[in-house]
Design a binder for these strands. Structure first.
Length: 283
DNA sequence: CACTCTACCTGTGCGC
DNA sequence: TGCGCACAGGTAGAGT
């Protein structure tokens, strides 16, 4: 489940890795499953629009990647936009590398390389926009770079439960189920609490937790979840650890369902007492 | 506005 | 051993 830190790792690898995608030229695009192309674009049109373009840069906002393409034929930039959703992966490989049964899209490059998009669950999408602002307009500030004032100001506009709020990409972009749980644990705040339940100092603690978790996870190149991800080394404290002892206090971690999402927490470190907004029996 | 539900997918892991 | 089924999750869109 790539969230902001995993997506940022992909961006850095494709940009700064050796070889790099930057400066390569699209030879031809191969769509192996039509619904990988999002928006209202037909696969055929997508291939045509991208052909002969040069990759100039990759930017990220939340969990979205935007590849700036420049075509010799057109004066304007075109941005290839990618959302990996649950199981999508991007690789820069030799053009001779063999595909898998999960390969959905191959961008063949003139340099003997290929940008490949593999996705077992086939939830991920690739599409074209003229300006990333079209997409970013619907998103909140990026969770990695949002400053404290902005975060606190945006919190003031809501009275919702914190777990669904953190998952809401229009509030802050980039936090998914794993890092929502990790951030709330780090802050020592129960996920069922609402914004209205928090004091000003608790709101600052929450901001600091989100900030620190995001930066640490990016430095680790993503999470390390019982072998689910091969890359990252960020040690999850609560996600997927229900029944195991809390690393801080030893109490058995608990899994709840909050807003239809599996939600992991330490009942000792994230106390629920004095929360008036809760309906009885939920914990 | 806040929330809930459903659809989209398929590998995994459970119970029987 | 094998079958069926619930489950996992991010987002869009419809409904309450």
């Amino acid at each position: 489940m790539p969230e902001l830190p995993e997506v940022e790792s992909v961006r850095r690898l494709l940009t700064e890795g050796r070889p790099s995608l930057i400066g390569t030229t699209v030879d031809r695009v191969e769509v192996l499953r039509d619904n990988v192309i999002g928006g209202h674009l037909l696969a055929e049109q997508f291939c045509q629009d991208v052909q002969d373009s040069v990759f100039h840069e990759i930017i990220r906002h939340g969990k979205y990647l935007f590849f700036r393409l420049h075509s010799a034929r057109a004066t304007n930039n075109l941005w290839m936009t990618v959302h990996l959703r649950m199981t999508g992966r991007l690789f820069l490989v030799s053009d001779r590398a063999s595909k898998t049964m999960y390969t959905r899209l191959v961008v063949h490059l003139q340099q003997g390389l290929a940008l490949r998009f593999d996705d077992p669950r086939a939830f991920g999408r690739v599409w074209l926009v003229e300006d990333p602002a079209e997409v970013i307009a619907g998103l909140g500030p990026d969770a990695l770079t949002v400053d404290e004032d902005t975060f606190l100001r945006r919190l003031d506009h809501h009275r919702r439960q914190l777990k669904p709020l953190l998952l809401d990409q229009s509030f802050v972009a980039g936090i998914g189920n794993i890092y929502a749980d990790e951030s709330l644990f780090r802050a020592g705040i129960h996920p069922l609490k609402t914004v209205a339940d928090l004091t000003v100092s608790q709101r600052k603690v929450l901001y600091r937790a989100v900030h620190d978790v995001m930066h640490e996870a990016v430095a680790c190149k993503g999470a390390n979840i019982d072998g689910v991800f091969e890359a990252g080394c960020f040690p999850v404290a609560v996600y997927g650890r229900a029944g195991l002892p809390c690393r801080t206090c030893g109490t058995a971690l608990v899994k709840l369902r909050v807003a239809q999402r599996g939600t992991h927490l330490c009942p000792q470190c994230q106390p629920i007492e004095k929360v008036k907004s809760l309906v009885g029996g939920q914990v």
